[in-house]
Design a protein around this nucleic acid. Structure first.
Lengths: 254, 254
DNA sequence: TCTTATTTGTTCGTATGTATT
DNA sequence: GAATACATACGAACAAATAAG
């Protein structure tokens, strides 16, 4: 006995557009009819159509460009396999520069990563995660990742400077196996990983890089690597468009 | 040299309100000034304030009730520890009816769960996840979970009827340790878990139960339990308000 | 119970700005 | 420069839910 919700006009139009996308009437990458056209087609004000389109954008189904039109989203959902990322085998596999590259290539897309490295004092939350005093020096590795030119992930890693300073960890190319292998060579082998996934509104920086529409959320991963003696030696904080990613975990019980 | 983004009026007001909430000017559970009052205070149209408030709601920071006003959100972020949920010890711990209860109580809130059990044919995606033919009979356990009266999770578990029919698995009270323990007793011990976390727009049913505002996203968990011989014997599909939950994982490497 | 005031939800008409073609 | 197309804002109005008398 569900009460038939009298959906607003904007909601009805949003549902119709969603349906058109799902049914293939509007193909990925193609342009939707202009808001004026849709307004006339449905017999409503253009503002009402604009509200409907905004809902689609917040869901990651479409993106709008001023002066050009509104387009059906193209980039498919990316699955991140948390556990297999940290096999040494996967990390060092020839031809793949890391787990991200492999995952993107498996989808038939072309991965690309820009890396910048700097050193600076740790913010409060970063210092706390690394069991360091606030303001302690850390190496900061920022990675901007793309799939076939589309920005899909913004990740920042923090490593205590006392561990990585002067090593390849502080260079843009961290070598085969990445910083995890370098840290292991330095006597800071990671044996345990903790990750938390949460969803929030993006920062201005994230919105700009990920080209997020107003109302689109990001998923944030806090990834911490621990040594055998229980010391956190690496924090990776990553933000991705929430609608675009799926996080996969796997483990044994009992 | 970031260009100073000329934020819209609605964005500026949203930012001011966010700041007021963060700074404690507007306390959790308290009412914000009415849209008319805010409109006058900021010298804008009420529709502009309405747009700003809508953004806060989509972020889970506030909720509005027609005729009453807009209130600052109260329920804090709930952390779900995936691995510890499936220790036998945690499952059977006295006084706690399951991992959810423990997590909610740890936050000083009162957990409550409504369970309904039925049997029916498996939908296509459910059947595929359980390696069954579409339409095969499954036991369907729906759980509606609350924290101090607030709905926070909607979970549906599917178990092949050939495994659970006629056992405590098909009853509302599945006994100590829950259905995982019952399945183990029946020779279907789960030894491996896979989970995926994704974010999407809620279904109408989820929106109604979780009291989600328009624009609010849900996080969806697909949880599958596997036996030693590689058979998927349980699918749990769960939806939660995306802003309200944090998912925690932990594992060893190398 | 009925009425009235309050408060949010939605829409239209109108207008202006900005980016693209 | 003109046409197209999306972004935002104000004014006005009515609907719907709530609260107070």
């Amino acid at each position: 006995m569900t009460v038939e919700e009298p959906a607003s006009l904007a909601d009805q139009i949003a549902a119709a557009l969603r349906d058109g996308i799902r049914r293939g009437q509007y193909l990925p990458g193609s342009r939707l009819p202009s808001e004026d056209e849709l307004a006339e087609q449905y017999g409503v004000d253009r503002r009402t159509v604009n509200t409907a389109v905004r809902a689609l954008r917040a869901e990651g189904l479409a993106r709008s460009e001023r002066g050009r039109g509104t387009f059906v989203a193209e980039v498919p959902v990316i699955t991140r396999h948390a556990m297999t990322r940290y096999d040494r085998e996967a990390r060092e596999r020839a031809g793949s520069r890391g787990a991200f590259d492999g995952e993107i290539r498996a989808m038939g897309l072309e991965p690309h990563t820009d890396v910048t490295v700097s050193t600076g004092p740790a913010a409060e939350d970063v210092a706390a995660a690394l069991h360091m005093p606030p303001g302690a020096e850390v190496i900061i590795r920022e990675r901007r990742m793309y799939a076939s030119g589309v920005p899909v992930q913004f990740a920042t890693s923090y490593i205590p400077a006392e561990i990585g300073a002067g090593t390849q960890i502080a260079e843009v190319d961290s070598g085969p196996g990445g910083i995890i292998s370098r840290m292991a060579e330095l006597g800071y082998a990671q044996v345990r990983i903790t990750e938390t996934v949460s969803t929030r509104a993006p920062t201005a920086q994230e919105r700009a890089f990920l080209q997020l529409d107003k109302g689109q959320a990001v998923s944030e991963i806090w990834h911490i690597g621990w040594t055998a003696d229980g010391r956190p030696v690496e924090l990776m904080r990553s933000a991705v468009p929430a609608w675009q990613w799926r996080f996969s975990y796997e483990w044994a019980i009992d």
